[in-house]
Design a protein around this nucleic acid. Structure first.
Length: 226
DNA sequence: GAGTGATCATAA
DNA sequence: TTATGATCACTC
């Protein structure tokens, strides 16, 4: 049996080694080693896989708005794949700032900072596969290519411009070619401040930036070839 | 069937 | 409430 070390890895090499160690394990095997209860489905525990992998790799940030491995400058993301190895879900990046956005640029944005370096862990995501039987794939370290960075910058600037102009309520998830803005909250009653049409503050649902499946597919292609 | 909008658990 | 981890589920 593989012994999982719960402390934080102190080097990139050590982190990647841990990722290699869990590759090929089923969710059930890893959850068993970590004494984590396995749900039937994710209807009530949507972040279960991510939290399982975080524990296994020794992520330390908790719910702080920083990367999972601050010392290494690495963010951890699980990526549920179909049988055809295509992404099954969009990827949440971070909350979108809806006020006090003067002075924020793509270069200094939360989005760009978050995804400077990502350790992607592909996992089987088909819902017909019982949770305990889904297999963990081979994790890989990724940094956006210049082109990928430019694609996200384009969407980010379009969306942030609308937010700055007080048009957040007119933004739909259909906007943005590779990155979109969608509600991100416990429910529809959650409200936060945003810039209104005349520049005053309004209340709206919190929003988050999400990478479209098309973008994470580009990531997969850029790493594994198409 | 795909995608948007909604939602669930948890921590601080 | 904001933030983390995301997937659900209804509508088209």
């Amino acid at each position: 049996m593989i012994v999982i070390n719960l402390s934080s890895p102190t080097s990139v090499e050590a982190l990647l080694e841990r990722a290699r160690d869990i590759a090929g394990l089923s969710f059930g095997e890893l959850a068993g080693q970590l004494n984590v209860a396995i749900p039937e489905n994710f209807k009530r525990q949507k972040g279960w896989t991510g939290q399982l992998i975080e524990r296994a790799l020794g992520a330390s940030a908790g719910s702080k708005p920083i990367q999972d491995f601050p010392q290494l400058g690495i963010e951890l993301k699980t990526l549920p794949l179909s049988y055809a190895n295509t992404p099954l879900e969009t990827t949440y990046v971070c909350y979108a700032p809806l006020t006090d956005i003067a002075g924020i640029s793509w270069q200094t944005s939360n989005v760009r900072n978050k995804i400077r370096q990502v350790l992607w862990i592909p996992v089987q995501g088909e819902r017909e596969i019982p949770v305990s039987e889904r297999i963990i794939g081979h994790g890989f370290l990724w940094q956006p290519t210049e082109r990928q960075d430019a694609l996200l910058q384009q969407d980010w600037e379009e969306l942030m411009d609308l937010i700055a102009l007080g048009k957040v309520e007119s933004i739909t998830a259909r906007m943005g070619q590779y990155m979109q803005l969608r509600p991100k909250a416990a429910n529809g009653r959650a409200l936060t401040d945003a810039i209104g049409h005349d520049g005053s503050l309004i209340k709206t649902r919190p929003r988050g930036f999400y990478l479209r499946k098309e973008f994470t597919q580009l990531v997969l292609n850029s790493v594994f070839g198409q």
